[in-house]
Amino acid sequence: MNFKEKLKEKTACAEQVIVSFLPKEQGFASHMAEAMNYSMQAGGKRLRPVFMAEMYSLLGGKGELVCPFMAAMEMIHTHSLIHDDLPALDNDEYRRGKKTTHVVFGESAAILAGDALLNYAYETAFQAFELAKDEKELRRVAEALKLLGEKTGIRGMLGGQGADVENDGKPLEKDMLDYIYENKTAALIEASLMIGAVLAGAEDLDKIEQMGSCVGIAFQIQDDILDVTSNQEELGKPVGSDDKNHKTTYVTLEGIEKAGEEVKRRTDLAVELLEGLPGDKEFLRELFLSLCTRRK
């Protein structure tokens, strides 16, 4: 089986896990659940849950302990996309090739759907306690929850989003841009790899965290490049939005050529760190490398 087939298979497995944890569309909150599920089922790479499951497996994890965290991570990621697309932020009408949540359900419903997904993510992750087989696994779940909270809050994703919004349209120095990318994008990828490792029993997470940082920032810089070089049909969302919103990106600071070199440098470092781990690393290696050349 080649890499594309493996990725398709692993993405489909992640999709099944995610769908199994979605809220039921019933009762007086059915419309909110519908808005949440619309966004969750709009497609996407499912990159973060795939990262989590692969690291869990690579380091010897077995069973379903990782599953609630896979779904929770994608809920948190999707919550951030719903809010990013709002008129008060990026004001985008398309995401993953479909109308954005606020366009379909209205702005107030989209705000609440994003809030609900963030909270529901933690409700979902808590279910891992019920799957833990012994005291050791209970401690691993607790550590994974701590990571999930830290990497998605003010010291992680939301901190990065806050800095991004506060500096929207302003010229940025590279250190501020690095902070935004490290937290807004890389923190969730770091968390995905680290949570997979923790649930499998790993204790030393420094290199895995660094690996996630490299992958996450490379991924975001490649997104900057695609915003300039791709088209809406290929990318699934409007292109040129960074320029429209006067955003400072790696492309505006360094130019496309240097931005591309930075993507390669960080991806190569992530692969180097990966080589120090045990197990069959071929799929993760190929996945890291594919981020350099993705077109969407």
Rank of each mutant, 00 (worst) to 15 (best):
G114C: 13
E233A: 14
F288R: 02
A121I: 04
T152W: 00
H79S: 15
P49I: 05
G276Q: 06
D223T: 13
A125S: 02
A12S: 13
I111P: 00
R95S: 03
T248N: 03
N183F: 00
Y56E: 00
G156H: 02
A53C: 00
T229I: 15
M32S: 08
K4T: 03
A71G: 06
L205H: 10
T293D: 14
E286G: 07
T152C: 06
L158D: 04
K62W: 09
L138P: 02
E254F: 11
I195H: 06
C292R: 15
T229A: 05
V251T: 13
E234H: 09
L118M: 07
E262K: 15
M70P: 07
S230K: 12
M157R: 12
F219E: 12
E173S: 08
D178W: 06
N91M: 02
E25D: 14
R294N: 13
D164G: 07
I256A: 03
Q127W: 01
V198W: 05
A29I: 12
E123D: 14
F51Q: 02
K133T: 00
D206C: 07
Q232I: 15
K281N: 06
N231W: 04
F126H: 07
M176Y: 09
M36P: 08
Q26W: 01
V19P: 01
V19D: 14
E275P: 11
H83P: 07
A132W: 07
I180C: 06
M40C: 13
P23R: 04
K170Y: 08
